[in-house]
Nucleic acid binder design. Sequence first.
DNA 1: CGATTTTGATAATACGTATTATCACCGACT
DNA 2: AGTCGGTGATAATACGTATTATCAAAATCG
Lengths: 350, 350
Amino acid sequence: MSRAVNGRVTQKQIAELAGVSQATVSLVLNGRTDEGIRIPEETRARVLRVIEETKYVADPSARRLAGADNRILGVFTYEPAFPTRSLDFYTPLLAGIEAGAEKLGSDLLLFTSTPVVDGRRQLFHEQNRLLLADGVLLLGVEMDSHELERLVEGGYRVVAVGRRETPGIPYVGIDYSSATRSLVSRALDLGHERVFYHRVGSEGESVRDRLEGVRMGTADRAVAIESRIGTLATVADDWAAIRAFAPTLLVVESPDVASALYEAAERDGVDVPGELSIVVLGSSPRLTPDDVDFTRLNPPRAELGERAVHLLSRILDPDQSPSDLDMRSLLACTIIDGATLAAPSSEGTK
Amino acid sequence: MSRAVNGRVTQKQIAELAGVSQATVSLVLNGRTDEGIRIPEETRARVLRVIEETKYVADPSARRLAGADNRILGVFTYEPAFPTRSLDFYTPLLAGIEAGAEKLGSDLLLFTSTPVVDGRRQLFHEQNRLLLADGVLLLGVEMDSHELERLVEGGYRVVAVGRRETPGIPYVGIDYSSATRSLVSRALDLGHERVFYHRVGSEGESVRDRLEGVRMGTADRAVAIESRIGTLATVADDWAAIRAFAPTLLVVESPDVASALYEAAERDGVDVPGELSIVVLGSSPRLTPDDVDFTRLNPPRAELGERAVHLLSRILDPDQSPSDLDMRSLLACTIIDGATLAAPSSEGTK
DNA sequence: CGATTTTGATAATACGTATTATCACCGACT
DNA sequence: AGTCGGTGATAATACGTATTATCAAAATCG
């Protein structure tokens, strides 16, 4: 009748109004019709009517405490998700995750509260809200293996977006290794014999997978290959090193670096792909693609996000028990033909 | 001692280990040192040590149920937040919101579960999780006034991002009206006398504010003005209508439409701003701004998001009671000079 | 030394929901 | 009439934390 102090309607009040007990209200709400539970149509209807009239909504905290699930998926990003820096990386993933969550009828809890230590967020801290979520998605290039292990030990339901080597962590990743190998093979088939590989420093699994792909692609081939680790900041030096080596094929891991190197080439009057072919091991999902049309890998990031949600939902569903195979899967990564790969000329850059 | 079934540590277990009661653990955890509560340093230290050792974290649901707050801010977007369509609009807002939440140590709960009816999400539904959040931020161009009222009635703590006319709804908005007026005035000061105003159909407050600004900017001026409502899809027809009217100044509400109209002008050989000046009542926060450098409004969206979080946090803080003035404020919107506004030539487009 | 105050800590309770064991009742059957 | 099976519903309890009223023991006082 009279609402509680905070204005909210509870099952108890519904019960009074409908002339039944709180337990009955709960049973009706959850549509329980199991063997042993009997509620005649008339009563059920009466309760439902009151629920309708009072605009009752269940308190998720109480539900959770009583053991029901919450339809909340946690999302943890190791870097802030929205600032422009990481936008290209996270946005397509989040788009997929959002779509997946919407299909499931789940909300997303973004753990933005975690204190930043050494430029990276700390998953565990005094007041973390991990428990509110039925399960958690983990995003980021590199993850702290200790934290991952602690998650597994703690019995949290977790899915990583991207391949992880930490045992016991289910993931959906992208098969960078195979895709990189094919891309490199395709280039070498054109006749390239001097290859320069520009890498980024990160230790993440996806980075290692690409390295592995380059290795496999160049194995058993008579090519001279040099590699160098650099970033956007070191691009000038990197370009000097590349010119010194005078390759006919340049394999670049980072799309951003690739753009910068392309500009450097343009400035120096090096014709791409006439004198120098460039292939890139990733894509930048910019909205206005006035960028160079690189020959490149095209990781299906949005699909990755959606698949990760799907896997998590299967893990959470007590009726399902995903096989080990399902728990750790890789999505195929397509290759975009682009305009920066051609057969080598006789001379190379110099 | 032995952990609970689900592997989690509770205050009760901490209590056993430390040889105290659950109540004491709670008091220590919350650092209560009020008058009437006394815990000697020794006991406090002992409890804290056990907490440290067991890696205890409080269950947020239980906290919430017991009346404590959760440090969770709800975020409701009336359209999906991440798909590329709405990306330009929401992303800077979300970036600001994320930054604000991080400062506060709050997590963000994205209500992605709400069923979509008529292309828009429905805030209230059977199992909404509004209660989990301490307060809610509302984003979107148009909002259902009924739902807003219901939120206020329900006693939910809410802040809208963008001005709202619904009574009782606190907001942080952008002063589109003044900014539009100055922009239009500035253009008219250059001598323009034939003005075409291209609007979008939306009924949102921010759209009306711009309309109001155009009205104020053109009032008491001897100008011929025509206006038309259109979208990206109708741009061809719109352009035809514009040519027929032959204005020297084109005021365009939507950045996207502006780009399309600019292209149409280019195709038709109409010089901008030589023959036709264009001013735009908004900005598109693209990452690669190879776009036309329009003379335009530059709404401070990221700041808007952060300010909205800040306001909400003040509303939630029991020690503060924001004044009515603080509850409904507008941020100044700057004007970017750009390259598409000049004095009119003698002829106009034709 | 008895009375009073202070100290340290706890028992009890509330929060709102889900679940299980139990109960009262009624009609049918022997 | 007494027994039985089925029906409709409820009382009791658990979940984990925060808060308040209460209590025993120790310290201080007259």
